[in-house]
Design a protein around this nucleic acid. Structure first.
Length: 553
RNA sequence: GGGCGCGUGGCCCAGUCAGGAUAUGGCAAUAGCCUCCUAAGCUAUAGAUCGGGGGUUCGAAUCCCCCCGCGCCCGCCA
C-alpha cells in the first residue's frame, strides 16, 4: 500500500457532501492540460436534473477551503480544480526528506508469487521468450515497490518429450563425452531435425527414454536433471546479464515423483471420468480436459495443477506470465482450480503476444532466432560506437560501463514499453537506435540532473514560490508517480511505468532548457529541490522496469 | 469453421477497463537553438476519414452488432 498526500480524496469527499451520488469516475486527474482535477459534472447531471451552474456553485466554495486548492473554474460541464503551484513539490519533498521515498510504502502482508520465463531447458533463451522474463521481472519489482512480499519462480520442465530429446540427442551424437552446454545443444538440434517430420522415428528414439524415466529409473532421472541444470545455467546467466534474477527454480519432476500429483487426483476424485483407461474432467461447456493418458502417465495440465497447489501453500496471490499460446490452458487451469478444488489464492494470468523477427516468425529449428546474448552483445557494440563519438574525452573503462548499461536498459525498455497484448516485430534498425522514446533519453535526463546536483550541492532552502510552466509541469509529474504505480499494480501493466518515465524525463528536459538552476538567485533553492526530487523519483520508477542509471554518460 | 487477442499519421507507440473539452509522444522530413548546469537535448512547421460499415448516446478511438486484415489456440503435446 502506498502512502502519500493526495487532495483527490478530499476534493471527492467535498463534492459528495453536496452530491452523495458523485462517483469516483466523475472526478479525474486531468490529462488534457485544462486543470489538475476535473469534476465532470455532465456525468452527475444524468442522475439529477440540475444545471451545471447550480452544481458548480453548490460545491465551489467548499472545495476552495481545501488547503491545497488554489482555484476552481467552471467551463460548461466541467468544474476545473487547480492546486497551488508549490503544493506538488512541497508534498513530494516532505516524503523524500522524512521517509526517504515518495510515495512511502506500508508493508502489505500479502505474499505474491510471480512465475515467469519457465522456458524448456533445451536451448539458449531468445528474445521472443525474453519478453516473458522482462514482463515478469518488471511486475515483480513493481509489486514489491507497492509493498507486497514478492518472490519469483521458474518452473523447470525436466520430464517431458523435449528434455527426453535433449538426453537422447546428446547420447547419440556425443557418446562418452562429459556433458557440456554446446554438445548438449547441438545434440538436441540434430535429433530434433531428425524427428520433426517423422513420428515413427520420434516414437522409436524418444519413447523408450520417457518409459525409463517414468518407471523411476534413478540413473536416467539423475542424468536428465544434470543436463537440464547445465542448460539452465546458461539461461540463468543470460537473464542475469539483463538484471533478472529468479528466486526459486522448481523442478517439474518433483511433482511426478512425489505425492503431489496423486493428491491432485484424490482431490478431484468425484469429478474424474474414464474413457478407455484415460482420465479426464468435464468442464461446464462439455469440454473434456484429459489429466492422465490411458497408459497411466500424466498430462501437462495435471502437473500444472499440482504445481499451483504447491504455489498456494506459500502465496496469497499467484501471477503467471505466459505466452498467448497458453491462454486456453491457463483458462482451463483457473477454472478447474476455482470450481473443482479448494483453491484460496487470487490467480492472475498475464499473457503476451508473440514477437516476430523482421516480419517473419521466430523459428528455433530454422535458425530464425535472435538469442538474448546476441541481441545484448550487438546492442552494446552499437552503444559503444555512439558513446565514443559523443564523449571522446571519456576513459575506456567508463565507455564500457556506459555502453553496457545503455544496452541492458535499451533491450528491456524496448520490450516493456509496448502493451503486452500487442504483437512486437523485432527490427534490428529499431533495436539499435537510441533516439527519442528510448532508454537513453531517460538515462540522459537523469545524468543531467545529477550533474547539476553535483555542481550545485543539495541546498534546500526555498525562497521562491513562483513557478514557471516548466517547473509546474515537472512538479505535477513527480507528484503523480503514486497514481501511476497504483494503476500499474491494479491492472498489472508494467508499460505504464515506461510511459511515465518518458513523460517525466521529457518534463525535466523542458525544465532544463528553460530554467537554469545554478546562478538563478532566488529561484535556485527551489530548482535544486526540484532537480533532486526528479532524480530520485525517475531512478525509483526506472529501476522498476530495469533501467540502469549512470551519474555520467 | 469455432474461440481469444490485435488493427490509431509513411513507421513505432499512448489513450480503450471506468464514453466527454483541440487524439499522446517519438522516428523519418523541413526550419531554427551550444561565449550559459552534458545538443543522447530543446523550439517550430508539416503529417490522422482512430481498419470498414451500422447502432446506442446530447457526445464514441473508447460501449454494442456485422464485416475485413493479421496473430494465437482448437492433441490422451507442452
Amino acid at each position: 500500500m502506498l502512502l502519500f498526500d493526495d487532495p483527490y480524496e478530499q476534493v471527492l469527499e467535498t463534492i459528495r457532501d453536496g452530491y452523495p451520488d458523485a462517483n469516483k469516475t466523475d472526478l479525474t486527474y486531468d490529462r488534457s492540460g485544462h486543470a489538475d482535477f476535473s469534476f465532470r459534472m455532465f456525468r452527475l447531471k444524468k442522475q439529477i436534473n440540475t444545471s451545471f451552474d447550480q452544481i458548480a456553485s453548490k460545491v465551489t466554495a467548499e472545495i476552495l477551503k481545501i488547503p491545497a486548492v488554489r482555484k476552481v473554474a467552471q467551463e460548461s460541464g466541467y468544474l476545473n480544480i487547480f492546486l497551488r503551484d508549490e503544493f506538488f513539490l512541497e508534498s513530494v519533498d516532505k516524503y523524500l526528506s522524512e521517509r526517504k521515498q515518495y510515495p512511502d510504502t506500508f508493508q502489505d502482508p500479502e505474499r505474491v508469487l510471480v512465475e515467469h520465463t519457465s522456458t524448456n531447458p533445451t536451448g539458449p533463451i531468445h528474445i521472443g521468450r525474453t519478453r516473458n522474463s522482462i514482463i515478469g521481472d518488471s511486475l515483480a519489482r513493481i509489486l514489491a515497490r507497492y509493498g507486497y512480499r514478492v518472490s519469483t519462480q521458474y518452473f523447470v520442465n525436466d520430464s517431458g518429450k523435449q528434455v527426453a530429446a535433449l538426453y537422447k540427442g546428446f547420447k547419440m551424437y556425443h557418446p562418452g563425452e562429459p556433458p557440456a552446454i554446446d554438445s548438449l545443444l547441438s545434440g538436441y538440434q540434430k535429433i530434433y531435425s531428425e524427428i520433426k517430420d517423422d513420428r515413427e522415428k520420434e516414437k522409436d528414439l524418444i519413447e523408450p527414454v520417457i518409459k525409463r524415466y517414468e518407471s523411476g529409473d534413478s540413473e536416467i532421472i539423475g542424468e536428465i536433471r544434470e543436463y537440464c541444470t547445465i542448460v539452465l545455467e546458461g539461461i540463468r546467466k543470460s537473464l542475469s546479464s539483463i538484471g533478472i534474477k529468479i528466486d526459486d527454480y522448481v523442478w517439474e519432476s518433483n511433482f511426478l515423483r512425489g505425492t503431489e500429483l496423486e493428491a491432485v487426483f484424490e482431490m478431484l476424485d468425484n469429478r474424474l471420468k474414464d474413457e478407455n483407461g484415460a482420465t479426464y474432467i468435464e468442464l461446464d461447456n462439455e469440454t473434456k480436459v484429459y489429466l492422465r493418458r490411458s497408459n497411466g502417465t500424466s498430462l501437462y495440465i495435471a502437473r500444472d495443477i499440482a504445481y499451483h497447489i504447491f504455489k498456494a501453500l506459500n502465496s496469497d496471490w499467484i501471477i503467471d506470465v505466459l505466452g498467448e499460446d497458453h491462454k486456453e490452458h491457463a483458462a482451463r487451469l483457473s477454472q478447474i482450480l476455482r470450481d473443482f478444488m479448494d483453491f484460496k489464492p487470487r490467480l492472475d494470468v498475464v499473457t503476451y503476444s508473440f514477437m516476430s523477427l523482421e516480419g517473419s516468425r521466430f523459428a528455433t529449428r530454422r535458425g530464425n532466432i535472435v538469442s538474448l546474448d546476441d541481441l545484448l552483445r550487438r546492442t552494446e557494440e552499437e552503444a559503444l560506437k555512439i558513446v565514443r563519438e559523443k564523449r571522446p574525452d571519456m576513459m575506456e573503462e567508463k565507455l564500457s560501463e556506459v555502453s553496457k548499461k545503455v544496452a541492458v536498459s535499451s533491450v528491456r525498455f524496448n520490450i516493456i514499453r509496448v502493451n503486452s497484448s500487442k504483437p512486437v516485430d523485432f527490427k534490428w534498425k529499431e533495436a539499435l537506435s537510441f533516439d527519442g522514446d528510448a532508454a537513453p533519453f531517460i538515462m540522459y535526463a537523469y545524468a543531467r540532473a545529477r550533474r547539476i546536483l553535483e555542481k550545485a550541492g543539495e541546498e534546500t532552502s526555498v525562497d521562491s514560490r513562483t513557478y514557471l510552466k516548466e517547473e509546474r509541469a515537472l512538479s505535477r509529474n513527480l507528484y503523480l508517480y503514486p497514481i501511476i504505480l497504483q494503476d500499474a499494480v491494479s491492472n498489472l501493466k508494467p508499460e505504464l511505468i515506461a510511459t511515465y518515465c518518458l513523460d517525466l524525463a521529457k518534463a525535466f528536459n523542458e525544465f532544463y532548457a528553460n530554467c537554469p538552476v545554478i546562478g538563478s538567485g532566488p529561484e535556485m533553492g527551489k530548482r535544486i529541490m526540484l532537480t533532486s526530487a526528479f532524480s530520485k523519483i525517475l531512478r525509483d520508477a526506472g529501476s522498476l522496469i530495469g533501467i540502469e542509471f549512470l551519474e555520467e554518460m
